[in-house]
């Protein structure tokens, strides 16, 4: 039960986006991929997801090379990407197959989990950004993926909604022990959520550092230890202005 990325590189029209990325995950781990904009985080995640297959290197799922989309993987995008012509419950059950009433029952369970019971028959146009992203989370969870890939899932939300959904993600993780691969450019988000951080840097993006976040959960967003980690990361990314 593991996801392994081995020497993955990707080139767009003769320009390298990522180079030689290797890492592996353990079961039930939350891995953060952190880096500044444009360093290839999305590119890497798309390669892992199988949405993009024109990369070099390998992605191994449970020990086997996997170069296509797989039902063991769930993907949550930066934008909710709901089908505007489907109601909330139909959106959640989008990835399910089988009898309609069973799909609906299953979808209703996950809607309840993300706190949207009662919004089943709403349409996406009636939802706020945070609600829409909750629906997207439910849609990704309903197929019970073993691995959850998230590409800056909360970056388009306001600070309060963001914190709520981060906690929701942790609840889900606790309940299902899903292995989570979270792409983010938000250092605080990464520190609050992740067991381990892979810091990408440069263009093409390469792994600059792997960082174990040694802080038990539940974490406090303001903890001194996390602040120290943050300082360290900002230094690594050369984002702090030196104090003289």
């Amino acid at each position: 039960m593991s996801l392994k990325v081995r020497n993955v590189s990707k080139e767009f029209e003769n320009r390298k986006a990522i180079e030689n990325i290797s890492f592996s995950t353990e079961r039930g781990e939350i891995i953060g991929i952190l880096g500044t904009s444009g360093c290839g985080k999305s590119t890497l995640l798309r390669a892992v997801s199988g949405l993009d297959t024109s990369y070099s290197g390998d992605v191994l799922l449970d020990g086997q090379v996997c170069r296509h989309v797989d039902e063991r993987l769930g993907f949550i995008f930066q934008q909710p990407r709901l089908m505007p012509w489907l109601s909330v419950i139909e959106n959640v059950s989008f990835g399910l197959s089988g009898r309609k009433d069973e799909k609906q029952k299953n979808a209703a369970r996950y809607l309840d989990l993300v706190g949207l019971k009662g919004n089943e028959s709403d349409y996406p146009k009636q939802l706020s950004g945070g609600m829409a992203q909750r629906v997207a989370i439910a849609r990704a969870l309903v197929t019970s993926p073993e691995y959850l890939l998230l590409d800056e899932p909360f970056s388009a939300l306001d600070a309060f909604t963001k914190m709520k959904l981060q906690d929701l993600l942790l609840e889900i993780w606790e309940a299902y022990q899903t292995t989570i691969l979270l792409v983010t450019h938000d250092v605080e988000e990464a520190l609050y959520l992740c067991d381990r951080l892979i810091i990408l840097k440069g263009q093409p993006g390469t792994i600059d550092e792997e960082l174990l976040i040694d802080e038990p959960r539940p974490r406090s967003r303001g903890s001194a230890k996390l602040a120290a980690y943050k300082e360290h990361i900002l230094n690594r990314l050369e984002l702090t202005t030196p104090v003289n």
Partner: peptide, 11 residues
């Protein structure tokens, strides 16, 4: 295209 990707993700 983003919606199509969602569909692809579900195979």
């Amino acid at each position: 295209r983003q919606l199509i990707e969602v569909g692809k993700m579900y195979g």
